[in-house]
Design a protein around this nucleic acid. Structure first.
Lengths: 342, 342
DNA sequence: CATTGCGGGTTAATCGTTTAACCTAGCCGC
DNA sequence: GCGGCTAGGTTAAACGATTAACCCGCAATG
């Protein structure tokens, strides 16, 4: 109780005996107000704990100061990082973030976008469902997907990440690879796979496997032990979730990781650091990506005539070396003290 | 382009030659409008694609139609489910959801709440940082934590979940338990542990372990293999993340799960279903929890005089039986065809 | 001296919606 | 015939901030 309605411009104007317009000018620094009066106004505004009503401002200016974050992929484990980074970036620019989840459904996604528009979002940040494109909606939109997707605004350099991880494995001495994808419909995953392929050393053998491919039951084993028996030593997955699946499947089959086989993931999810052995994976620089996406969106909103300032290509991914990838047995010529780092 | 500003009440009024008030009345069904005119107004509103400006309404009514979701625990893996459920529940009630992440910092949490209030959130849903309480802020607040926390509004029955999992393990024949917590500062985890303890069968032995306890390096091994060597057969964790840590640590040490030891988790995170063996864990009914939280919040906002309608006690958790928990060797008197279920 | 310029404000309109108050016929009852 | 009631509207005043337009006095300038 007694949380009296916040002070408005009118209250302050009344207290000082000046007009609302002057108060508004003094606070925004736009019109012409004498230095002395301006100072007095700002002082009492502070004293009264004045906070501008964003609603009032929104009505007048037609801009709500809110960005919509549209997450299309159901319960995406990357979501916390994205949401956190986007919210932080938006907050430093004075914007709020309204969320909308479409639970993986395309029509639901349209509904979600409509809801955000009705709420007056000034722009949208869309992390699209694998492979789907977001249509024209009459609102500034920033898309976070992968550089090769048409209409993509900013994203990590998934292709380069794929190159890095294979380069790392090849450098350790691996020559027989298994590349494990999730869904072939995902642009991101395809780019990661392409990058991996492009970095395979000459003379290397490799097998490509889709975990959610046709004819494979959702939870069915991937049959990795058999591949290992066939000589494969490096299992590079396009996501940490698949890497985890691979890791535990191999361990359950009695194979030692990384002594017998190496496993790598993608995205540096929360569990990558806690499993044994720690998962070697690629980290996405979400704060930078979100910063770029928000900046780009604000540019479109506030200065539609200017050109994009987002650097082309993706934001580099960073290889996080843990313990799940090591030299294969055959290549163990000069072991570097298998002990864990400090 | 040419996305002309949406039709307003004024436009419709002008088109039909009536006053704005009448249009407003006809659409909201509040004032007195003749059946015939009302029908005509609604028809043209539909034809013109009229969507009420929530900003205008907010300014007039003082309510924004937006709820704030405050997530305090950094990158909480449960976040996607919470956000998704809350957003869905809010959307069906015509509300939007504004997010705020405090990155685990308490002062940052205050800032985040302040930002939400400035944006005119009508109420807040807070998932507090472990153990912290949210102070009085002059806005309706629903807290999702655990039933034993003062000020908690709704949550899962963590205590009952603990009972269930130990009951399940005891039923399988286990008599020597290791209970693994994360942080002793978490109310939720403490309740889960208490529930577990309360369900220990007579004569059972148990050890309590805190993964983030003092004197333990963040990523350091938990030493579970030694406990297993000492006779422990059931490892019950308070979270799937810790269960995953336990599972992989035990597997790396050469122990077979569930043949040698059983492992259970909590929360049914996305990875619980994909690891080998699948993790037996407890599922939170987030949609129901979110529904209760949102309903309660809307009740406080729209009918402050009425009493709470949230059923006391927590929302029951559901045991999800996968393959990580089975009868211990010694108790394998009548094996039920060790094969996996269909 | 008359005009222009400008510093320092004020007035008033506007965004879109809601709602209390008011107005005007028509009709009924007395 | 007239007061009162009602149905069916209209008017107008908010909500809070922004901003174009205007106004006034004083100084400088021709």
């Amino acid at each position: 109780m007694s949380t009296r309605p916040r002070a408005s411009l009118k209250d302050i104007a009344a207290e000082l005996g000046v007009s609302v317009a002057t108060v508004s000018n003094a606070i925004s620094g736009k019109g012409r107000v004498s230095e002395e009066l301006g100072e007095r106004i700002r002082a009492t505004a502070l004293a009264r704990g004045y906070v501008p009503s964003l609603t009032g401002r929104a009505l007048r200016t037609g801009r709500s100061g809110v960005l919509g974050l549209v997450l299309a992929d159901i319960a995406n484990p990357l979501f916390p990082k994205i949401a956190q980074a986007v919210e932080a970036a938006a907050a430093t620019s004075g914007y709020g973030v309204l969320i909308a989840d479409s639970r993986g459904d395309v029509t639901e996604q349209t509904q979600a976008i409509r809801r955000l528009m009705e709420r007056g979002a000034d722009g949208l940040i869309v992390v699209p469902r694998r492979g789907t494109r977001v249509g024209e909606i009459g609102l500034p939109v920033a898309v976070i997907d992968t550089p090769s997707t048409p209409g993509n605004t900013v994203s990590a350099d998934h292709w380069g990440g794929g190159r890095q991880v294979i380069g790392h494995l090849a450098g350790l001495g691996h020559r027989h690879f298994v590349l494990i994808g999730g869904s072939a419909a995902s642009n991101v995953q395809n780019d990661r796979i392409s990058g991996m392929r492009s970095a395979l050393p000459a003379g290397a053998r490799h097998t490509l496997l889709w975990a959610e491919g046709p004819g494979r039951a959702p939870g069915a084993p991937l049959g990795l032990a058999a591949l290992a028996a066939g000589g494969a030593t490096a299992f590079a997955s396009v996501s940490d979730l698949i890497a985890l699946r691979a890791l535990t499947e191999l361990q359950s089959a009695g194979l030692a990781v990384p002594e017998d086989v190496s496993v790598t993931g993608f995205d540096d999810m929360v569990w990558a650091g806690v499993v044994t052995p720690g998962l070697t994976t690629l980290h996405q620089d979400m704060p930078t990506i979100a910063r770029h996406a928000v900046d780009e969106l604000l540019r479109m909103i506030e200065h539609p005539e200017t050109a994009s300032a987002v650097p082309p290509g993706g934001v580099p991914m960073r290889l996080v070396v843990r313990q799940s990838a090591a030299a294969p047995r055959a290549a163990r010529t000069c072991p570097t003290e298998g002990a864990k780092p400090t």
